[in-house]
C-alpha cells in the first residue's frame, strides 16, 4: 500500500515535470520555426530610433525624379495633394481652426515616413521602389517641408537623426473626457 502511494507520488512528479517542460517548449507543438532569412525578408518595420532601416542612400535631386514620375499624379506636382494626401506645408497650423496635417507639420518621425512609403507607396505599385529610391523620395519630401537641404542626401543614420517639428505634439488618450 505504502509503496503504491510512493509510486503514484513519483508518477505525479514525473507528469508535472513533463508538463512544465513542455510548457517551456510549445504547449501545442503547432507551427514551425521561422528562419532568420524568412524574418529578414518580411520584417520591414522601422523603429523610431531608426532600427531596422536598410542599407542604401538617396539624394533630394534623385527623389524629385522619383516623385515626378511615380507620385505627382496622385499627390500633385509639388505635393499639394490630389487623390492622395497633401504632403507639404501646414507647419504652425495645428492649433488653428483650419489645421493642415501633412508629413511636414504632423508626422512625428521621419522613420515613419520612410516605413510608410516603402510598404504602401506608390499606391498603385507598393513595395516596388528600391531602398535607394525610398531614401531619395523621403529626402525630397522632407526638403519640400524645409527639413532637409535642397542638396541633401539621406541614409539610415541621417534619416534617423532628423527631428520632425511635431515630434513632441502627441499626448495619450485622455478619455473619458466628458462626464
Amino acid at each position: 500500500m505504502r509503496r503504491r502511494e510512493l509510486w503514484s507520488v513519483a508518477v505525479a512528479i514525473m507528469v508535472s515535470a513533463w508538463v512544465t517542460g513542455a510548457q517551456a517548449q510549445s504547449p501545442y507543438g503547432i507551427g514551425r520555426p521561422a528562419t532568420p532569412a524568412e524574418i529578414a525578408g518580411w520584417n520591414i518595420d522601422i523603429g523610431r530610433d531608426g532600427s531596422n532601416l536598410p542599407e542604401g542612400r538617396g539624394t533630394v535631386s534623385h527623389g524629385r525624379e522619383v516623385f515626378d514620375q511615380q507620385c505627382a499624379a496622385c499627390h500633385g506636382e509639388k505635393g499639394e495633394g490630389g487623390v492622395g494626401d497633401r504632403l507639404v506645408g501646414g507647419q504652425g497650423t495645428l492649433g488653428t481652426a483650419k489645421p493642415i496635417r501633412t508629413v511636414g507639420s504632423y508626422c512625428p518621425y521621419a522613420t515613419t515616413l520612410f516605413d510608410y512609403i516603402r510598404r504602401a507607396m506608390p499606391q498603385n505599385a507598393p513595395q516596388s521602389l528600391s531602398n535607394d529610391d525610398v531614401y531619395a523620395v523621403s529626402a525630397y519630401l522632407l526638403s519640400l517641408n524645409g527639413l532637409v537641404g535642397a542638396d541633401g542626401t539621406l541614409d539610415a543614420k541621417s534619416l534617423a537623426a532628423i527631428k520632425m517639428p511635431n515630434r513632441d505634439g502627441f499626448v495619450g488618450d485622455a478619455r473619458p473626457d466628458v462626464k
Partner: peptide, 24 residues
C-alpha cells in the same frame, strides 16, 4: 512601431494643437 496609421492617420487633434494618440 509608430506606424503611419497610428501617427499621421488615426490620431485626434485637440484645439491647442496637441494630438491624442493610441485612443484604442
Amino acid at each position: 512601431i509608430y506606424s503611419r496609421e497610428e501617427t499621421s492617420k488615426y490620431t485626434d487633434l485637440m484645439p491647442d494643437g496637441s494630438a491624442r494618440e493610441f485612443s484604442f
